[in-house]
Amino acid sequence: MAKQAVGGDVGASESARSSPGLGSRVAELLLRQREASIFFVAIALAVYFQSSNSAFLSSGNIRSLSEFTYATAIISGGLVMLLICGEIDLSVGQAYGFAPIAMYLADQTLVLPVAVIVGLLATAVIGLINGVATVYLRVPSFIATLGMFFFLGGVNVILTDGFPKTAPSGSFLTEILGGADWSGIAWCLLIVLLMHILLNRTRWGLHTFATGGNPVGASEAGVKTAKIKVGNFMLCSALGGFAGVLDALRIGSIDPLAGGPNIMFFAVSAAVIGGTALAGGTGTIIGAFLGTVVLSIMQNGFSLQGVSAYTFNVILGIAILTAMTLNVYVGSLRRSGRV
């Protein structure tokens, strides 16, 4: 009798599992593949803005969309690595400003290719300092990089005497590094691809997940969590610097006030909307890229519609809160094993 009841139970749950409707199958896909949901959001937004204004998908506007996207997407890729480690870099927007300035100063005495490398190395050193302060001096990264944020912000103005400088231009290198149309987004796509491989197909990426998911367990298993964290701080900062160089060479001007909190917060928002949790242990590069695309589409689309920047901020705020709430909810569903 009891056995029969158990058997019946199993049968019932079996049939419920084997015949899901299309809707629940799509829902399951959205929950399982974090990138899929944000991808559909991007498509839906593009369709909406195109239907309300046919200029949205014109080649000129797609180019300006790409210019909105690439620098933030590169930065958010670096931030994803750090967020997975359970750390954050609030100073990455200043590294974005600092690299072109370091490049500019080096370019006064050195050849440009070397100057570019100097700029990137300078930001890697910034990341090294952030990492050492966080890992070895045990200052929480939120505080350590907040300090670096103010420090670099001041340094950027001091080094330029507060005046924008004319960026090097007209050479093959400057054309490749942002000067030519589409070069920025091409770099961005290449970096997203490489970062995706780094995160998902290499030991470094696996150890990054391990470091954020279970720091004590990872080090007991022999993972060098300190090295992973410091390395990701350096990577994040250098990517911020590279994005800054691309933008400076595209715009043709090196602005001491470029970057700062705005681009950093956009990049963090993009990572979060793309499914990276601030608590560490999970995250995707492609999700962060798509998150940036969604933010760019919204910003660009709303400005085409004549919606003010303030309204955009309200919508962005709602989007972040919604994404985070969904993240927490989906996370608890996953943990309970229902998805």
Partner: peptide, 24 residues
């Protein structure tokens, strides 16, 4: 094998099995 097992919840069984001695 410590009590906390040094496993990473977010990673798959096979990635945990080869954690820090991954095959490449």
């Amino acid at each position: 094998v410590f009590q906390d097992l040094a496993l990473i919840s977010e990673l798959s069984v096979y990635h945990n099995m080869f954690l820090n001695s991954e095959l490449t």
